[in-house]
């Protein structure tokens, strides 16, 4: 059993570490510093932490203003509010002028759990992906979250970082991290699953089980949804011909659509998008919700066999 750690906790730790290395990093939160874990930065660098109160729209535009003064703002709240409520501020205050703001949002997806559908953002990848110039990153475990935070800080321009709330496995592999470069975590030739975030460890488990049955499932960790790694997507789709996408997000507008956009017109593939099927979430334990919404190892195995 792998060690478990919530991706958002790794975010908070990485942010505090980054704060020590880069004194231009400033952090904004909207009264959720303990949930988003930005409080770890606050503890070390209170003079560079700004609580905006429960006012996400203002927070995003404040971050835009701070960026013009040479700072690298990380603005955090729940994905529902940071990408949802403040969508137009992200679009017009930050992305339209191409300001150097990092939108680091936690509690994305349905593994928010008991708080229910009103707080489970299953649309944020779609919302952010559609904005010109926005980089969209979905780390799959605690280690990758740390690398993503540092890479985002080094990239000039707006970045959306998506972090999950619930504890998830830390992968027992040393993955490089380069924005826009997908990682092949398991080689295979019978089918390929392009996964992101919390679905990556589940995809690896499925691959292991399928291997015992003689089915070789390639697992590709697409941590950067935009710009997507076209080359790796095409290489593995062409090699395997059976393509599955796997994300804790609506099947509309997310990783699945990003992959299908790459493959459209490039060849003939069997294709299946696994994700939340155009429904809202609800209260429940994360594992119960993954089962309810078809995001389990068993769901993926069944999809591979059905293609």
């Amino acid at each position: 059993m792998s060690e478990m750690k919530a991706i958002r906790i790794a975010y908070g730790e990485a942010l505090a570490e980054l704060g020590g290395k880069n004194d231009k990093v400033v952090v904004l939160d909207a009264d959720l510093a303990h949930a988003t874990q930005t409080a770890k930065f606050l503890d070390k660098y209170p003079e560079r932490f700004f609580n905006c109160g429960i006012a996400e729209a203002n927070m995003v535009s404040i971050a835009a203003g701070l960026s013009t003064q040479g700072f690298v703002p990380f603005a955090s709240t729940f994905a529902m509010f940071g990408a949802g409520r403040a969508y137009e501020q992200v679009r017009n205050s930050v992305a339209y002028p191409n300001f150097n703001v990092k939108l680091a949002m936690t509690h994305a997806g349905i593994c928010v759990g008991e708080d229910g559908g009103s707080h489970q953002s299953i649309e944020d990848i779609a919302l952010m992906r559609v904005i010109p110039g926005m980089t969209v990153i979905v780390p799959c475990d605690a280690n990758e979250a740390r690398k993503a935070v540092f890479a985002a800080a080094d990239l000039q321009g707006p970045v959306y970082l998506r972090f999950a709330r619930c504890p998830s496995p830390i992968l027992d592999m040393d993955m490089p991290f380069e924005i826009g470069k997908a990682n092949v975590l398991n080689e295979g030739s019978d089918a390929v699953v392009f996964a992101c975030g919390t679905m990556v460890p589940i995809a690896l488990d499925a691959a292991k089980e399928l291997e015992a049955e003689g089915i070789k499932l390639a697992v590709v960790n697409v941590h950067t949804i935009k710009p997507i790694d076209r080359e790796t997507v095409l290489t593995y789709a062409n090699k395997c011909k059976k393509v599955i996408t796997f994300e804790e997000h609506s099947v509309i507008g997310g990783l699945g659509d990003a992959v299908s956009d790459v493959l459209m017109g490039q060849g003939s593939y069997s294709f299946k998008k696994l994700g939340v099927q155009d429904k809202f979430g609800q209260s429940g334990k994360p594992d119960e919700l993954f089962a309810e919404y078809g995001l389990t190892k068993e769901d993926l195995i069944a999809a591979v066999k059905a293609l």
Binding site: E47, N58, S61, I62, A64, L66, S67, Q69
Partner: peptide, 12 residues
């Protein structure tokens, strides 16, 4: 809001 962020940035 952006102007306010600029003012905060200048002060910081």
């Amino acid at each position: 809001s952006i102007a306010t962020g600029m003012a905060l940035g200048a002060k910081t």
